[in-house]
C-alpha cells in the first residue's frame, strides 16, 4: 500500500485526476450548501434565457432558472446516473465476455449471439419498454443506459480473454492444474483491466449523452430535474441566444470524464507492475 501511494504521488496526471474527482465528489456532497439561497427549480420567466451576468454567473435557462445552481444541483443526479449506468453495463458485460471467451463452444457462442442481438436492439425501444413497465424516473434511465451498454464491455472482455488464454503463462497455469476460477481471476481479469477502464471512463460521457438523447424524446427524467442531459436538451433551441445552457453541462460532463480518465490512467500505471518506468 505504501509503495502504491509513493508511486501514485509521483504520477502527475493521476494526481490531477484524483483532485478533479475529489472536487466533484465534494461538489456532489455539498450541492445543497453550494446552491443555498437559490432554488434550482424556481421558475422566473421574466429572466428567461439570460446571458451570463453578475447576478447569474452562467446566465439562466429557458425557464429563467439560474444555470450555475442547476448544474451544481444536477451533479449528484447525473453522476449517479453515469456511475450506476456504467456499473450496470460493466459488471454483467465483463462476466459475459469472460465466460464467453474462456468457455468457447456452445455457451460462449450463445452468449455472444445474445450480445449481438442486444447491440442491434434499438436503445430508445429498450428505454420505452422499461419506462412502459416501470414508469419514468432516474432509476429507469440508469437501467436503460446500463442494459444497452453491456455489449461494449462484453466484447472488449471477450477479445482480451481470447488473446490472453492462449498465452504461455495461462497455458502453463492450466497445465499445472490450476482451477478455471483461479486462472480467470488471477491471470485473465488483470489483463483486461486497462481496456475496461478506458471504456468505463468514456462510458460516463456516453451515458450522459444518452440521457440527453432520451430527454429529447420525452423519455428522460421528469422535469424539473436538473440532470445534466436534461439541461443540455433544454438548450437545444437556445444555441445562439444562450449557448451556456449547452456548454456548461457539457463542460461539467467533460470535467467528470477527464477526472475519471486521468485517475484511471494513474491507477493503472501504478497498479500494473509491468508499467514501471
Amino acid at each position: 500500500m505504501a509503495v502504491f501511494l509513493r508511486r501514485f504521488r509521483r504520477h502527475t496526471s493521476g494526481i490531477v485526476g484524483f483532485v478533479i474527482v475529489l472536487l466533484i465528489c465534494l461538489a456532489v456532497l455539498s450541492a445543497p450548501v453550494l446552491t443555498r439561497g437559490v432554488d434550482p427549480l424556481a421558475v422566473n420567466l421574466a429572466v428567461s434565457a439570460q446571458r451570463p451576468s453578475l447576478e447569474y454567473p452562467l446566465g439562466t435557462d429557458e425557464m429563467g432558472r439560474d444555470l450555475l445552481t442547476r448544474v451544481i444541483a444536477g451533479a449528484p443526479i447525473s453522476l449517479s446516473i453515469a456511475v450506476v449506468g456504467v456499473l450496470l453495463a460493466l459488471i454483467p458485460g465483463v462476466w459475459i465476455g469472460l465466460l464467453a471467451g474462456y468457455y468457447e463452444g456452445r455457451l460462449g457462442a450463445w452468449l455472444m449471439r445474445s450480445i449481438d442481438a442486444l447491440v442491434a436492439f434499438p436503445r430508445i425501444l429498450l428505454a420505452m419498454v422499461i419506462i412502459s413497465i416501470m414508469g419514468t424516473g432516474i432509476s429507469q434511465l440508469m437501467l436503460a443506459i446500463g442494459l444497452s451498454s453491456i455489449p461494449i464491455f462484453a466484447r472488449v472482455m471477450f477479445v482480451t480473454v481470447q488473446t490472453v488464454r492462449h498465452r504461455d503463462f495461462v497455458q502453463a497455469a492450466a497445465a499445472l492444474g490450476a482451477r478455471d476460477r483461479w486462472i480467470l481471476w488471477r491471470h485473465i481479469l488483470p489483463n483486461a483491466f486497462a481496456p475496461i477502464l478506458v471504456q468505463a471512463s468514456l462510458g460516463i460521457a456516453t451515458s450522459l449523452q444518452i440521457a440527453a438523447g432520451l430527454s429529447f424524446l420525452g423519455l428522460g427524467p421528469p422535469p424539473p430535474s436538473p440532470e445534466w442531459g436534461a439541461i443540455i436538451d433544454g438548450g437545444r433551441t437556445l444555441i445562439r441566444q444562450q449557448p451556456m445552457v449547452i456548454i456548461a453541462p457539457g463542460l461539467a460532463i467533460a470535467m467528470t470524464v477527464l477526472g475519471f480518465n486521468l485517475l484511471g490512467d494513474g491507477l493503472r500505471d501504478t497498479l500494473d507492475p509491468r508499467l514501471k518506468r
Binding site: L45, L217, P223, P224
Partner: peptide
C-alpha cells in the same frame, strides 16, 4: 405533457405547474 409535439410543450407544463 408530450415533449416536442407542440411549441415548448414540456416547458409550458413546467411553467403552468409553477
Amino acid at each position: 405533457t408530450s415533449q416536442g409535439r407542440y411549441a415548448k410543450d414540456k416547458e409550458m407544463a413546467e411553467a403552468v405547474a409553477g
